[in-house]
Design a protein around this nucleic acid. Sequence first.
DNA 1: ACTTTTATTTGTCCATGACAACTTTGACGA
DNA 2: TCGTCAAAGTTGTCATGGACAAATAAAAGT
Lengths: 297, 297
Amino acid sequence: MSKTKFELFNIGIVERETGIGKDTLRVWEKRYGFPLPIRDERDDRFYPAEQVEKLHLIKRLLDSGMRPVKVVGLSMEELKCLLERLPQNQAVPSDELLMLFKLIKANQANPLRLALSRSMLQQGLGDFLSKTLTPLNHLVGEAWMRGEIRIFEEHLYSQQVTTVLSAVIATLRDSNGSPRVLLTTLPGEAHALGLSMVEATLSLSGAHCIMLGVQTPISEIVLAANTQQVDLVALSFSAAMTPAQIKIGLTKMRNALPQEVAIWAGGSGVSRHLTEGVWVVKSLFELTEAVGVWQAK
Amino acid sequence: MSKTKFELFNIGIVERETGIGKDTLRVWEKRYGFPLPIRDERDDRFYPAEQVEKLHLIKRLLDSGMRPVKVVGLSMEELKCLLERLPQNQAVPSDELLMLFKLIKANQANPLRLALSRSMLQQGLGDFLSKTLTPLNHLVGEAWMRGEIRIFEEHLYSQQVTTVLSAVIATLRDSNGSPRVLLTTLPGEAHALGLSMVEATLSLSGAHCIMLGVQTPISEIVLAANTQQVDLVALSFSAAMTPAQIKIGLTKMRNALPQEVAIWAGGSGVSRHLTEGVWVVKSLFELTEAVGVWQAK
DNA sequence: ACTTTTATTTGTCCATGACAACTTTGACGA
DNA sequence: TCGTCAAAGTTGTCATGGACAAATAAAAGT
């Protein structure tokens, strides 16, 4: 039984699967000759699974700074070659990090969760977050960029970290804490892991966290900030959103929120950008310090 | 200081905020004369906040079965009038459900979480899931449709349920359980609550759950199913995805997975649709029964 | 070597048109 | 009055081709 006829994806599904917009897919086809889907009788595009797979690789290279003209249209071999040559983090990971990383690559979900918990209890939560989890995230992110880790392995990893963190956050919850912080991401940003790490850090510092989950519309964040009487709104951005989108979102947030509510933005996507009235948090350590300053005054 | 200039959204942001595609927004404008955004000097559409708000109401009406020609283009008053007339659930909610519902409407996150935990421990997990959480979800869903509950309130509610459930799931985790189940949603389906409820139900029945979180590409689900040696894949669908999208996704999944791996699909979005080789789970009770049957053989 | 100007790249937007899938309406006979 | 089936209308999504601002790279000037 041939399975090829089932491995065709129309442009809408490809957009959802790869995160590359329909317009972009069509314009790439015209400019670079890839992807070049087959057409049905109505001239609709149908992408074979191989091309979708290749689009995933291309997306990774673009996310790590390459330009479309250099990567769209290359062969599978050339793409893989490029992925392997991506700039590596110089710092040599500790033995513990390597051990955790191996568990991730081996898809050992339960041993991984145990190891994470053990690591957290040995180091304490603060050090675990900044000295283990943050570098491990980088390691995973880079490996993912190079194609050494599959999406589902990354999902599996996120899930175990989330499980471990949510257990510890539950024990730290303090409804009388200060400052009162609303945590969420803007529409389009689905990455929840960074948010959980921020919640853990803030909770550890004695803040009162109100977690809204991911993808809250801007107007709703404003409403929530009002009814929950928060002192600040914490937003997390991964590399999934473009700098332009982030900037627009932050500007809208700043203008929609009352002046006395602060906005703290963090995550890899927000690295060097700055918007008037929005404080960019560069690390969890900075975050802890800032909470201390806030509480002192 | 006028704030109007900051309350303009371009078509891309409106698509992300409302979940209504760009093509659809443009074609509505032509056909029904709404939304009618202002244009900048380059003829790009910019939607005022009021129109985005109205689009949210319209989306709700469409999701509850209305047709665009009847709702797109109505005035704010007419929309609200329609929302209030939506078919109510006939069953009278119990006092306990009403109490929980009031806490949700009052944005009392902590009291809500406590009440949920108490309810769970009093009833037992199974009854809590099917007799409290499921009807409460319906109540919240309907109230949301009628506009009585804001998006952020729904987020707040989801978050508390997730917190309560993840704590109990952690205590039930059994890596030797059977069947081995992979849990996730397809790309485009971001609702995680149903998935958590399924995980809780399966865990309670003694299954071994491997949670992948939401939005896993089809090819990755297949890979994960192979490496984790699962017996079945459980997929959850909310009303957010259209029946057509669900059908395509399920067909692709069925053809991509080996025959011996079963597919169980559940959630409000999947109600009466059926695909060859995919079992549609209609309730958590049915789910428990099915696991029992599986374990018996 | 550093700044400024020019050229190229790139994603997103626009208009218009088409059509399959779905829903409603209307005609017809039992 | 009711169910059935065909015709008519509705709706989301896809297509083409063109445009342009923002971002990036290349070139020129100091």
